[in-house]
Deep mutational scan, measured.
Amino acid sequence: PVYLSVKADNSMFIGNDPVTDETMITALNALTEGKKDTTIFFRADKTVDYETLMKVMDTLHQAGYLKIGLVG
């Protein structure tokens, strides 16, 4: 499974590897070998604001990742 996490300080990680807004999709493409039907499990600290969550989800959708599971 692929886990994308947003921490309380808005830092992002794919698994244990830090990513930025600019590198997130490139890292996901490498990890999933470009398979856009891969489910991305998205988790965020409860203090992360809604705007940040939606920005990340919008970026995922624009890149073609449509299977996003929200996890606690």
Results as ranks from 00 to 15, higher is better:
residue 9 D to H: 08
residue 24 M to R: 00
residue 32 T to L: 09
residue 23 T to E: 09
residue 13 F to R: 05
residue 70 L to K: 04
residue 47 T to A: 13
residue 14 I to Y: 02
residue 16 N to H: 12
residue 12 M to V: 09
residue 35 K to T: 04
residue 46 K to W: 10
residue 61 H to E: 08
residue 13 F to N: 03
residue 67 K to F: 11
residue 45 D to G: 05
residue 60 L to C: 01
residue 47 T to H: 13
residue 57 M to V: 11
residue 41 F to I: 14
residue 17 D to W: 13
residue 48 V to R: 02
residue 62 Q to Y: 07
residue 24 M to P: 01
residue 3 Y to S: 04
residue 47 T to D: 15
residue 59 T to C: 08
residue 20 T to V: 03
residue 4 L to R: 00
residue 72 G to D: 11
residue 25 I to L: 10
residue 39 T to V: 14
residue 19 V to M: 03
residue 51 E to R: 12
residue 62 Q to C: 07
residue 6 V to D: 00
residue 67 K to Q: 10
residue 46 K to C: 13
residue 44 A to H: 14
residue 17 D to M: 15
residue 30 A to F: 09
residue 47 T to L: 13
residue 56 V to R: 04
residue 8 A to M: 06
residue 44 A to F: 13
residue 9 D to W: 06
residue 72 G to K: 11
residue 45 D to V: 03
residue 48 V to Q: 03
residue 17 D to E: 13
residue 6 V to S: 01
residue 51 E to G: 11
residue 9 D to C: 06
residue 13 F to D: 02
residue 52 T to Q: 09
residue 12 M to L: 11
residue 11 S to C: 11
residue 21 D to L: 15
residue 54 M to Q: 13
residue 53 L to C: 10
residue 54 M to D: 05
residue 62 Q to N: 12
residue 15 G to L: 04
residue 42 F to G: 00
residue 15 G to A: 05
residue 27 A to P: 01
residue 24 M to F: 12
residue 57 M to E: 03
residue 62 Q to E: 12
residue 22 E to P: 02
residue 62 Q to D: 10
residue 17 D to V: 15
residue 59 T to F: 09
residue 67 K to I: 13
residue 5 S to R: 11
residue 35 K to H: 10
residue 55 K to I: 06
residue 39 T to C: 15
residue 3 Y to A: 03
residue 9 D to M: 05
residue 40 I to R: 00
residue 7 K to T: 12
residue 42 F to D: 00
residue 65 Y to N: 00
residue 68 I to P: 02
residue 38 T to K: 06
residue 19 V to S: 02
residue 29 N to P: 01
residue 58 D to C: 11
residue 44 A to K: 04
residue 33 E to Q: 14
residue 13 F to Q: 05
residue 23 T to D: 10
residue 8 A to G: 11
residue 4 L to D: 01
residue 57 M to I: 14
residue 68 I to S: 03
residue 39 T to M: 15
residue 46 K to M: 11
residue 38 T to F: 08
residue 51 E to S: 12
residue 23 T to Q: 08
residue 42 F to M: 15
residue 31 L to P: 00
residue 70 L to F: 14
residue 40 I to D: 00
residue 29 N to S: 06
residue 7 K to I: 08
residue 72 G to R: 11
residue 47 T to V: 08
residue 72 G to V: 13
residue 11 S to M: 11
residue 67 K to G: 04
residue 17 D to N: 15
residue 33 E to V: 08
residue 33 E to I: 06
residue 13 F to P: 00
residue 63 A to Q: 04
residue 52 T to L: 13
residue 36 K to C: 04
residue 3 Y to Q: 05
residue 71 V to D: 09
residue 64 G to I: 01
residue 7 K to N: 13
residue 53 L to W: 07
residue 63 A to Y: 07
residue 18 P to R: 12
residue 13 F to A: 05
residue 35 K to Q: 09
residue 43 R to Q: 14
residue 28 L to A: 01
residue 21 D to G: 12
residue 5 S to T: 15
residue 55 K to L: 08
residue 57 M to G: 01
residue 4 L to M: 07
residue 64 G to R: 02
residue 22 E to K: 11
residue 70 L to I: 13
residue 11 S to D: 05
residue 72 G to W: 06
residue 62 Q to F: 07
residue 42 F to W: 03
residue 7 K to H: 14
residue 14 I to P: 00
residue 24 M to G: 00
residue 26 T to H: 13
residue 37 D to S: 09
residue 60 L to H: 00
residue 7 K to A: 09
residue 63 A to C: 02
residue 7 K to C: 14
residue 20 T to H: 05
residue 10 N to Y: 12
residue 34 G to S: 07
residue 4 L to A: 02
residue 43 R to Y: 15
residue 21 D to W: 15
residue 21 D to T: 15
residue 31 L to D: 01
residue 48 V to A: 08
residue 14 I to A: 03
residue 30 A to I: 13
residue 12 M to W: 06
residue 18 P to T: 05
residue 12 M to D: 00
residue 39 T to I: 15
residue 35 K to D: 13
residue 22 E to A: 11
residue 28 L to Y: 00
residue 22 E to M: 09
residue 52 T to C: 06
residue 19 V to G: 01
residue 27 A to E: 08
residue 70 L to G: 07
residue 2 V to Y: 03
residue 54 M to L: 11
residue 31 L to N: 03
residue 17 D to K: 13
residue 18 P to L: 12
residue 60 L to D: 00
residue 15 G to F: 07
residue 53 L to Q: 05
residue 1 P to A: 10
residue 36 K to W: 05
residue 25 I to P: 02
residue 49 D to H: 10
residue 43 R to H: 15
residue 54 M to P: 00
residue 27 A to D: 04
residue 22 E to L: 10
residue 20 T to S: 08
residue 49 D to Y: 06
residue 51 E to W: 11
residue 8 A to S: 12
